[in-house]
Every structure is written in C-alpha cells, then in structure tokens.
Design a binder for these strands. Structure first.
Lengths: 133, 133
DNA sequence: CTCTACCTTAACGTTAAGGTAGAGATTCGG
DNA sequence: CCGAATCTCTACCTTAACGTTAAGGTAGAG
C-alpha cells in the first residue's frame, strides 16, 4: 500500500508518516523499484498504536521502545528468549502499563477541567448576549 | 506575588510563565525595583484560564485572543463600547465557544481510544506474565 | 556584610510536525 | 505505446512551546 492510502486510513499526514520512517519508528516493509514506500497491514497497525498512544503524551522515542518490546515478546519463539531478557522485557512492559494508567487519569482530569472551562465560556457568552437586548 | 509562588499555585513552570510574559500573553502587573516580576490574583486567574484551555489544543496566540476579547467585553463600560465592535467581539466569542465544544468532543474520543489502548496493554501484559509460570 | 534562596536576561537546544521545491514514478485515457 | 494527471521522492527550511545552561542580580535573615 502506498503512503497516501496509509494516510487516509490512519488519519496521519503524509509528512508525519515519513517522519516516523525517518526516525525508524515505523518503517515501510518495502519500497517499490521506483522508491515509493510500501506499507503492509501490520505497518498500519503499528501506526494505529502510535495514534492511540499519542494523546497520552508519550514521546515518539518511548512509543518506539514499547513497540520494540512487544515485537520481541511476540515474535521470538518462547524458547529462543532467555529467561533473563524475557523478565526484563516484562518488567519494562509493566512500567509502561503503569505509566499508561497514570496518564489516562491525568487526561481525565484535563478533560474535566476543559469541560468546566467550556461551561464557563458558554455561561458568560449567554450572559453577555442576553445583556444586548 | 513573585514568580515562584505563581508557579507553585498554577502548576506551570517558571520558564513557561516567563514565556507567556515574553509573548505578551500574561504580563506581570508590576515589577519590583530590582526587576522581579510581581503578579496579582487577577494575573494568576489569567494563567489558570490558559492552563484549562491548553489541553484543548489552542495555540498561545488563540488563547491570547480570547483573553483580550473577554477583557474588552468585561472591562469596558457598556456604554463606552460601540455596538458594532461589541457585536464583533461577541461573534468571535461565539466561534471560540463552538471550537471549545468541538475540541472537548475530540478530547473525549482521544481519551476513550487511550483507555482502549490501556486495556489492551493490560490484557497483553497479563497473558504474557501468566505464560511465565 | 554575607549567606542563601530566589530571581533576572540571553542564547542555544529539543521535540514533533508542517511547508516547499524540484525531480522522478505511476497510472490512466486515448 | 504516449502524454497528462497524480502521486511520491528527498532535502532542506520553519514553527511552536517550551527546556537548559550560563552568568549573574536581588531580598531579607542573621
């Protein structure tokens, strides 16, 4: 799949997708002979992970780290992974999980503050408009 | 009030507060003879407005615009404000109100996506840990 | 005084992304 | 098979909103 269609499906801009490639965050699985980026469904799935994580305020570097952790846990056959490394990966995954929960909570407070602000604004606008009569 | 206390009360960094001063977004009401920024309660209130708006993704410029609109609507005596200008200000305020509602909605979808992501992560971590036994 | 905590400006760095230009690749109608 | 219309490429420039570091000035307690 070409980059344009990936952009349409993920809601990310072409520029952003190229940026993620440059950083090594989500590399296209292949290139056409002419040099066009070619993405697979799995690549799109990785982009969607990023899209969902982003509101939580993780840096691109952190998201790349998480992707590489899950890649290694999923794609290595269980036997091929030394116990020590597996433990370490699971520990890091756990820290991500905790951070995610914390940031979700932070996002909820932000949202409620924002809604409070929206309500204030609406009330004030209403008052001022009413005063016009 | 000095900048440090303002930072403590608003939860903004010193750098951020100075940045807002540099941009003319929230100017300290005075300076000490030695040059320290001196903030009033009203200044802090302005900073809190920004703090609440920020999660909605408004630019600092837009927030400055909103602050100046409400300032003019509040601080000018009703008579001193020409009807035409007042109309214009109210119209702009209305656009802000609409944008705020839209962005609140967007924030809610982002939050739900993030929570979905958090749930996924938790489920996957649980599975992997269980496999360890 | 002098010490300490707090404050100042100035300048450069960072992160994440958008803009632009000019060249090359693909594709589609004829 | 060919030319036009799209699409994509790389490379570089720009922006927003701060963070960081350096080098120092200030307020007030002792």
């Amino acid at each position: 799949m070409h980059i344009g269609q990936v952009a349409a499906r993920t809601g990310l801009s072409l520029r952003t997708i190229r940026h993620y490639d440059e950083l090594g965050l989500v590399r296209p699985s292949a290139r056409s002979q002419g040099g066009f980026r070619l993405y697979t469904e799995a690549d799109v799935a990785r982009l969607m992970v990023i899209r969902r994580m982003k509101p939580l305020g993780f840096t691109l570097e952190e998201m790349g780290e998480l992707l590489s952790i899950t890649d290694r846990l999923d794609n290595s056959s269980a036997a091929a992974l030394e116990t020590a490394e597996r433990e370490q990966l699971l520990a890091r995954l756990g820290r991500f999980e905790q951070a995610t929960r914390e940031r979700c909570a932070a996002l909820r407070t932000q949202l409620s503050r924002a809604e409070e602000f929206a309500a204030d604004l609406q009330r004030r606008a209403g008052q001022l408009t009413a005063g016009t009569s």
